[in-house]
Structures are given as structure tokens and as C-alpha cells.
Design a protein around this nucleic acid. Sequence first.
DNA 1: TCTTCTGATGAAAGCGCTTTCAGTCAACGT
DNA 2: ACGTTGACTGAAAGCGCTTTCATCAGAAGA
Lengths: 341, 341
Amino acid sequence: MGTMVSAARVKLSDVARDAGVSAATVSRAIAQPGLLSPETLARVRASAQRLGYLPDGAARALASGRSMTIGAIVPTLDSAIFARALQAMQATLAQAGYLLLVASHEASPAAETQAVRALLGRGVDGLMLVGAERAPETTALLRTSGLPVVLTWCGDGHFTAVTIDNAMAGRLAAQHLICLGHRRIGMIVGHLQFNDRQRARLAGARMALEEAGLSLPDSLVVEQALTLAGGRAGCAMLLDLDDRPTALIGGIDLFAIGCLEEAHARGMAVPDELSVVGIDGLDMSAHVSPGLTTVHVPTGRIGNLAAQTLIAMVARRPVERETLLPVELVVRRSSQTLPPH
Amino acid sequence: MGTMVSAARVKLSDVARDAGVSAATVSRAIAQPGLLSPETLARVRASAQRLGYLPDGAARALASGRSMTIGAIVPTLDSAIFARALQAMQATLAQAGYLLLVASHEASPAAETQAVRALLGRGVDGLMLVGAERAPETTALLRTSGLPVVLTWCGDGHFTAVTIDNAMAGRLAAQHLICLGHRRIGMIVGHLQFNDRQRARLAGARMALEEAGLSLPDSLVVEQALTLAGGRAGCAMLLDLDDRPTALIGGIDLFAIGCLEEAHARGMAVPDELSVVGIDGLDMSAHVSPGLTTVHVPTGRIGNLAAQTLIAMVARRPVERETLLPVELVVRRSSQTLPPH
DNA sequence: TCTTCTGATGAAAGCGCTTTCAGTCAACGT
DNA sequence: ACGTTGACTGAAAGCGCTTTCATCAGAAGA
């Protein structure tokens, strides 16, 4: 044996010869076994097995026009949110024989365009994207490609989408705090530039406050990078205000956890001196101290449904234009009634 | 316009015709622009641009034998560790024009075999795997394929690998606690079945204890699912022992964070009544309360290097057989000297 | 002036598979 | 007994691109 230079890979025609059938028959044995007689099928399978035949995906894709691959483009893989959604997608796709091709754009519309181009070129059968906001060029690319596309978290009313009501999430967080008697509420959000989810959450919170005769002035909103440290920094800024808020909403749970930390570092008791509410419902949030009140988002289901929807679209089965998944307030210890002044 | 049935996609021959050159020339304009005269190149590019030409990846892969795709198979995407490594890989790969195809096996060797088969079939140019332990069948598949393969976290001395010294990580954690005066130390590890990283960490910790004249009996080791809840449950089991340990090591940071939580729930002060050390160095660990002492692992670099190594192997450039990345103890507040008895 | 290069381009043969279109053959109906 | 039907299978034409190999100017050398 030793280091043998990779033996020429077994190909379909080898199997055909070995089994004494035509190439067409072997192909059918793989893709439409029902068309073959049991004996032929068994013979072909035996040969394929014995020779260790593995179909060449590129050739199949070229000949059939389907790559059995779905692409997903997310802001980053390094986030509990997208990691969970992708894991769910991947699991669902794998069951259907699809593979997941991933790309990230790090909040850059141009990078997203590039990623779309790359995935389109690679011949994915469908594409999952996050949010509805993107460079017009990207949208044009998507449209002219005619490829099945599913937007997630936010829809645009045109592409198929699996979404949550981000504005409602913001609203629930705010209403909860309002009900507890808070009147001065601050919010930390991600950079709003290329992030419609954060914009919607902010808008929802603001609207809830206004409906209650209150307001969420820009002075009480701070934009931060989507990290725990960003949340902590945002919290610090808000707490340093002359008329500091009595409650804070994190546009993502990570922000809220950062707030918990900053409050702790300052010796401010949560929830006694500061109430904190997040949005996302990370596993982690149930485990921090105090437990984080948050608006839970069914992240895994978004991934599962996006995958299922894409699979259905590839198969030309009808699908919901937009699936809206419910968000839900989960009250824990980080928020409480505003103590009497 | 309206709903136009997807216009036949622009293909290389269309560009060739438009530019008044042969298909070969267009192909060269894409892959080896240096071979063309500046004028021809410009003309072809202009045509391609105008027609919106996007090369067909499947056809390229079939004709050239390279798919410009790298595969990665991890236990799960839904873990801060693998998510970070994959994000790093993806970023590095994207810069080199490669795309990342991901699969997860959820700690099932059979699922891993299947994933390898799927990725091999899809014609990836290289493959990243986690750990060195796997079904013999998988290894055979990998070997006969002759594909560039990089193992991560643990190597097997045969395949190229980007690793960390897991045993050293366990050892550092244990030695730290021993130095603080702890004599009775417990450890929570992931299921050891198909996880050589956890086995090595356990072995390292055990060895450190034995070298100090102590021991880590099986009664003080509990296997748990790799989640925060698993860590908490493991901690509970260990604390319920008659002769409870004074310090706990988490085989992953998540376990250690679970310990913090369980201790908190029981009203046990950390580190006064219980010292806790983790292994991984999650961002989160710096932010929990008390800050978690942990053995930091350069997760992102593992991903970067795995990608770089794979790219080099595809290009037939020589690479290190095994790159061992350093781990480092980061002392925070969760561990302290054992108080006088 | 006549080779000999060199650089730029084209013609054409696949890459390994799918799929249409025919064709074969046994069973069936009348 | 003979056209029909239906179930299988095979021949062959690509899928869209890459890559030899050949060609053909024009530059350089003799």
C-alpha cells in the first residue's frame, strides 16, 4: 500500500461496467430507484458499495441543475443567535439531503452583495438572508436570479420570509417597564445603519412609551457594537446622565447582560435601583444573576422554518409568503416595580 | 416586466459572442487574466459586466476539478466555541475566495461519517474536522479520498492538525487549585464517549493531582451534556456528596458557569466556600459574577489557522504537520485560597 | 531574407452525470 | 395468433466550463 497517489476516483461508468448495466441505469439507481427492477437495483447497489462509489456533486449539479445546497448569509456566525438559527437550519436541511453553505458579512452591505454573488455562482438551490434591508444591487441580483430566497427576522413584504415582530418585542419590553411604574427608560441598540431588526425594536419601544404619554428621547438611546462590552459601555453612558433612567432595555440580551454587569460594578442593585430587560431570550439570560427579564424570540424555529420553507420552494411547493413567529415576555428578577421615590 | 419566467442565465458562450472572442478567452479572462492582452481583457470584462455574467460553479468545478469550497464538520454550530472557530474560518476562507460548507454531527460518529460522505460527494477541496477520534470508516473514507484534511483541537499524529494541549489545559486548571491549597477537587466533563478533548482535559487534571500526591477519583468526576444546565446538574451532584469537594473544574466554561449558578442558588459563596475554574475562555466568562478563572483557548486562531492550512494544502504548499496553540490560565475571582479549615 | 521564438487566441475534447427518447420484451386482451 | 400496453433499460445528447494543443501574427536572431 504505502502512499499511493490517489487512485482515480470511482465513477458512475465504472459502476455501470461492474454491474453490467448502462450508465443511465446506475444514475437511476441513485436518483429514482423505483424505476428499476429489484434485481437490477440490488446488483447496481452491490457494485457501487463494493467499489466505494461516491457520486460527483459537481457533475450532478451541472447535469441536473440542482446542487442540493442551500446558502445562508448572516451578519456573523459568532453570535449565539445566528449560531442557533444556523444549527437548526443545518439539522433540518441535512435530513432532506441538503448541505449548508454559509457566509457572513459583518454588517457590511457590500460584503453581503459579494456573498450573494459568491453563493449564486456556487449554484445554491436557495438562499437564507437576515433582515430586509440591503444594497439595491443585492436585491436586484436576487430577483434576477429567480432563486428561492427566504428572509429571516424581518420581511420586506416581497420576498418570502420567516419573521418575528421586532417592533412588538420592543413594545413588550417597554410596556413591561411602564407597567412597573418606570417613567424614564433608556435603551441600548445595535448600530441602526444596516440593522432593521434593531430599528424596529427601538421603534416599538418608543411607540409603547408614547402611547403611555411618555417618550424615548434620543438622549436615552445609545448605539453600540453588538457585544456584551457594548452593552456595558452603553449602560455606563446612560447611568452617567444627569437624570439617569430607572430602567434599561437592551436591544439584544447581550446588551442587557452588559447592563447587569455595569450596574454590579457600580454597586447598583438590580432590580432595586435599576430594572433591566433584554430581547432575544438567550439560554444564558436565564442563568445570569439576577435572572434577566427578556422578550423571548424563537431563534431555533426561525432556522427550522427557513430551512423547511426553502426546501418547499425548491420543490415548487406553495409556501406562506410570510410566517410571523410569536415573541413572548419572560419575566425574571432583573425588573421590578419602581420603588417609591 | 412583470413575472418573467427566469430569463436563461447568461453563460460563458454568451459573453464570448458579445465580446467577439472564443470561449477559451473568456474563461482565461476569469481565471488567468495575465494571459490576455489588455485590450481583449478589457473587452471581455466589459461584456461580462454588461451582461451580468456569473460563472457557473458546478461547471467550473467539474471542468477544473476544484470547487473552491472547504467543508467543516463540527459537533454543533450552536456553541460559542465552534461558532467562533467557524466564523474565523469563514472570514479567512472568504478572503481567499473559498466558501464554507458546514455540517454538524451532534456527537454521533455515524452522523459524522455521513457528513464526511456528503461533503466528499459535494467535492469540497478540503475538510476541517474536530478532534482525532472517529469511526474507522470515516478515517478510511478520508484517507482514500486523498483530500486535504485538518483536524482541530486534537490531532492524531497522522492527519495535519491545528491543536491545543487539552491535557495541559486540564493540568493548569488543577494545578492552580492545588496551589491554592485545595485537596479535594471535583470535575465536570462532557460525555467522554466521542470526545477526546474532554478526555484529555480530564486526564491532564488527574495527572496534575496525582503528581501532587492527590487524586481525582471517579466519584468526583461527573459526565454531563455540554450545556450550562449540565454544568449546574453536575455541580449539584458533586456538592451533594458526603465529602464534598472544595473546588470544581469545568471541562468547558459553560460547566463552570453552571457551577457558579448552582452555588449561588444554594447560597454558597464563590470563591469563599467553593472555588471554580473553567476551560475555554469564553467572552462570557469574564463577565459572570464572580469573574470565572479559566484556561483560555485561542478558539478564533484555531479557525484562522485551520483555514490557512487548508488553503495551503490545496495549493500544494508545505504545511506544519501539527500546530500546537498555547493555552493560558486566566485568574479571576472565582477561585481563591482554601480558607483555614 | 529566412528561421525561431514568443505571446495571444481559437478549436475541440472532455469533466461525470442526468435525462429524453427509443427500444425490447413479456404479459394481456380479443 | 397479433396488435397493445406497460415495465425496464440503453444510447446519446448535452449541462457550462477548463484546458490541452494547434495556430498565427509579429518580434527577434542569424
